Simulated assay, not measured.
Amino acid sequence: MIKIATRLFIWLNTFSYKVISVLVVKENGGIHPKHRILNYHKFFLDNISVNDSVLDIGCGNGSVAYDLSKKAKRIVAVDIVEKNIKNAKEKFSNENLEYVLGDATNFEFGEKFNAIVLSNVLEHIENRIDFLSKIKVLSPKILIRVPLLNRDWLSVYKKETGMEYRLDSTHFIEYTEESFKEEIEESGLKIEKYYIKFGELYSIIKKYE
């Protein structure tokens, strides 16, 4: 009986998180309040320069790309979802910001950039080693933000007990520090520095000289 009750409340926890995420976006004019609370845009802004050309892969609603466009020289923002690109163009446009509809895992960019941004994107890609190996030739620097499995004890417990533990059902992986480091190394890249905040890992990735 206790096991059944525990599983029920854990399921409710997962379901509630998803519902809350949808509702707070609607309550806040289409923008998730996590952008403000986590202030994660600052990480990307702090690691680009005014003369940079930046590629934002998996740009979503365009809010990160827009903030980057207010500092960098040029931004190319790519997303695989047509609705995301449409909304981004409507809400977050700028003269130096170009939105592109496409799948970055097989898209031919035809140019190089000073930096690449992957903000909560890598975990959505199945063949991550191949993807990182492909994009590393496009830029000397990749700025990555990913959620961690051990963001709280309950997420780890959910996985241990065979329940849904992912923040998003489209995630192919929920990283630990160790698994993230292993994938970066396997991709022929190196972590210049990283830190963890609110259960997310922020890292500056570069190629070996």
Rank of each mutant, 00 (worst) to 15 (best):
F9W: 12
F9K: 09
I10C: 08
L12A: 08
N13H: 15
N13I: 04
T14V: 13
V19Y: 05
S21R: 06
K26C: 07
G29W: 11
H35W: 14
R36T: 13
N39I: 07
Y40W: 12
H41F: 10
H41P: 03
I48L: 01
V50N: 08
S53M: 07
G58V: 07
N61A: 02
A65D: 03
Y66A: 08
L68T: 05
S69R: 07
K73H: 09
I85E: 00
K86Y: 12
E90R: 15
N96K: 14
Y99A: 09
Y99C: 08
Y99F: 13
Y99P: 04
V100D: 01
D103E: 06
E108T: 14
E111R: 11
E111G: 06
F113Y: 15
I116R: 00
I116E: 04
V117A: 05
V117S: 02
L118R: 01
N120A: 10
N120S: 14
N120R: 14
E123P: 05
E126P: 06
D130V: 03
S133A: 10
K141C: 04
R145V: 12
R145M: 13
L149T: 02
N150F: 08
D152I: 08
W153M: 12
S155V: 00
V156Q: 00
E160Y: 13
G162W: 04
M163K: 13
E164Y: 00
S169K: 13
S169Q: 13
T170A: 14
H171F: 06
Y175R: 01
E177H: 05
E182I: 15
S187D: 06
K190Q: 14
E192Y: 09
Y195I: 03
I196D: 03
K197Y: 14
G199L: 02
Y202V: 10
Y202G: 11
S203P: 02
I205M: 12
K207D: 12
E209M: 12
